[in-house]
Design a protein around this nucleic acid. Sequence first.
DNA 1: GATGCGTCAAATAT
DNA 2: CATATTTGACGCAT
Length: 719
Amino acid sequence: MDQGLDSESVPPPGSIDRSRVLDVRPLRCLAPQFPTQPGMSSASTPQSTPFVCVPPTGPFPTGVRPFYPFMVPNDSQQIPFGAPNQPSFGNDIPAPVPLNSFRTPTPQANGGTGRSKRASKGQRLGSLGMDDDSYSDYQSDQYVGEFGVNSADLDDASYSGKRKGRPRKRRGDNGDELDVESLVNSFLTSFKLREFNDYRRANGDTEAVDNIMLAYDLFRRRLTQLEEAKDLTSGVARRPDLKAGALLMTKGVRTNNTKRIGHVPGVEVGDIFFFRMELCIVGLHFPSMAGIDYIKTTMNEETVAVSIVSSGGYDDEGEDGDVLIYSGHGGLKDGRMSDQKLERGNLALEKSLHRANEVRVIRGVPEFPGATVKIYVYDGLYKVQESWGEKNKSGCNVFKYKLVRVPGQPEAFTLWKSIRQWKDGVARRPGVVLPDLTSGAETHPVYLVNDVDDEKGPAYFTYVSSLMYSKPFATPKPSLGCQCMGGCQPGGTNCPCNQKNGGYLLYSSLGVLLAHKSLIHECGPTCACPPNCRNRVSQAGLKVRLEVFKTKNRGWGLRSWDAIRAGGFICEYAGDVIDASTTGDFGNENEDNYIFDATRSYEPLVAIQDEDDCNGSRKIPFPLVINAKNNGNVARFMNHSCSPNVIWLPVLRESDNNSYIHIAFFAIRHIPPMQELTYDYGRRVLQLTTPITMNNKFSWCLIPLGKKTNMYRYNTAAR
DNA sequence: GATGCGTCAAATAT
DNA sequence: CATATTTGACGCAT
């Protein structure tokens, strides 16, 4: 397991600075292991792409594209989004233009802007009677910029021109507006979102979609946090979801902003969304409220539907998961029913029936039974097969459309239905080896599942739900706990725990991490607050139903039956705390497989830069090493990924003169059910930018040091 | 025809 | 639970 990577996978000699190459050990095969969703094709997984290891701050060998997913590089080296090293875009990226010049499409001959027209799987045109060229022209040319300016030079007024004529109603203070305005500006700057160029705004890819989603979510959570703190008493129902979306849209932070028929690049079947605004900013479904989105065909001014959201507002239904009976919209006014009219979306769906074009379907499902919160699941492409009119209960005409799912797409909504049945006990989860791996140690049972081979389970270990300390961890700055008898509150500025977290409560009411810090201070034994305090998220046990499952090619892995919101807490890393100073190299490799070493170089994901975070103290060494070989929890099964959906953060729990440090895992994006949970084991490697997939899905990559991986070797089951 | 402005419908999240 | 909320289409005026 220790033969060098150098001989076979390193790019041409001389192209990298060997002195900067870190210790890289190969995985079983040199290709990274990417998690694949069940049923998803893994065809885009790179097979044998060479890797080179580079420090995060460079220098970067030729052909290597550095990319900071919302992370500010340590040095001052500026790497604008899409500028120097982007092979697929070249150097002729059109300059951005203000949003209001996007209003009306101006189809015209392509003047040879030199942009590559990448074929998109979303452009299914035949059924519309347009040929590819005319459609491409329509798509690209309406965004040809008139100004040769960089977006960074545009002041905000240029982007918010639309607002000038009709200033938004806002009750109360103007200071509020200014705060948010400067907040969004600093946010955009530190996240380099001002460089989000026009091409990417019009044509998304996985990276763009991921980034936009992350930006939206972090910004929304930050707004939530600030509003909560500011406005503790009034409790006025604000809408941070709408506000965050509106602000980002105004600033041009969006992608796929051209409506299209078919798939939207960068959005996969099965992807989940928690807010309608999210559908909007990634280009999946534009209207912020309406359920039917449609476009006008250039040929003859007809409209066709491009996407629908089925939210259950009307009584939509379907015979099975691949059929949807969708009600037309309208006919509802001030609580009064009237006949629906064949106009707008209804008309568009009717036309889509005749033209048989693909319609994206987004299913709104309640987060749990009876929940008011809906999760929007992208269920892929459907075609309208039938339409008819019906009288509803009030005796008014309602349009009905029968949509049938285009075959051959990955499972999405049907998977939700299956999971629902497993939970309800209506159906049995196939392949269950053990109904509860934890023997009751957690709040929810954790299934052990193998539907791949005969292996009966991982090597024996004792399930523990937290850390086993032999001695407390001494902090340099001992501090006292809080006195928040009723639990820490968002606006509690006197709360010492809040103060340590930068003045805010770090968790939302749902237990979602609101900002990313290098270190989370949670309440601990010496705090007066109750165990259900909002600032004790990592102590409250599992929030989601997890299962440990046998992967196809890397041992056991971890995934969730529940959807997990970005920022949601998953679990901590439990095990025996071992003394890093005495163990040296942590014993043999067998042990290493379950070692979590927090002392390794670690670059946290930094959201909005707080004062305490930008003073260069981001790299805090954490002298914590955990061995989960003998004692451990679900976290020991989490595999590494180069495009992880989970990160770990150190959590300090206050106690008298000592503090206990724990490792907590949080989702960094919305994670659909049954998608493997993975995090970055902590070694930074940049992948050479050989274009592998059309949407350049894996443009950077991290692979582990070789320690603490549970992916490659398994003893036969001892039970 | 192109542009600008006001009105309207849609359904949600708190 | 009531309701403030946003986007884009549409219609009309210039």
